[in-house]
Simulated scan of single mutants.
Amino acid sequence: MAVNNVATGTVLRMQFQTGVDANGDPVYRSKNLYNVKPQATDQDLFDVANALAQLQNYTLAAIMRIDSARLEEVVG
């Protein structure tokens, strides 16, 4: 039985450091952009995240790409 991986969507997650807690450990918050084309390149997502980070009040700590896919059985 063969299975195909069919891309269904991509999320661009930007993680910002919003401060520190009582112990001095960093506190993070995330912003997600949904409905990103799965065909978007990693470089394009990186560039967009950095451009959007310039509009934020907090420091950009991480950029993540989250891909999802549907698995389909190949028939025939």
Rank of each mutant, 00 (worst) to 15 (best):
D47A: 12
A51M: 11
Q39K: 09
A69P: 01
R13C: 02
A2Q: 13
N23L: 12
E73P: 00
Q43D: 11
V36K: 08
A62Q: 09
A69I: 01
R29K: 14
I66Q: 09
G9P: 08
V20R: 10
S68P: 00
G24R: 13
K37R: 13
F16P: 02
A61Y: 11
K31W: 09
D67T: 04
S68T: 12
G24D: 09
D21M: 08
Y28P: 05
Q17W: 01
L33Y: 15
A2N: 14
V48L: 15
P26N: 06
L55Q: 15
T18S: 04
N50K: 12
F46T: 15
T59W: 00
Y58G: 00
I63F: 07
T8M: 05
Q54H: 01
M14S: 10
A61T: 00
N23Y: 10
A22K: 15
S30R: 13
G76C: 02
S68K: 13
A69C: 02
E73Q: 12
V6T: 08
E73R: 14
L55M: 12
K37L: 15
E73H: 05
G19F: 08
V6W: 04
E73T: 11
A49E: 02
A69K: 01
V48W: 13
L55A: 03
L12E: 02
P38G: 01
M1G: 12
V36G: 01
F16W: 04
A22Y: 13
Q39I: 05
D42K: 11
T18E: 06
N4R: 15
K37G: 09
L12V: 02
S68G: 08
M14G: 05
S30P: 04
E73C: 00
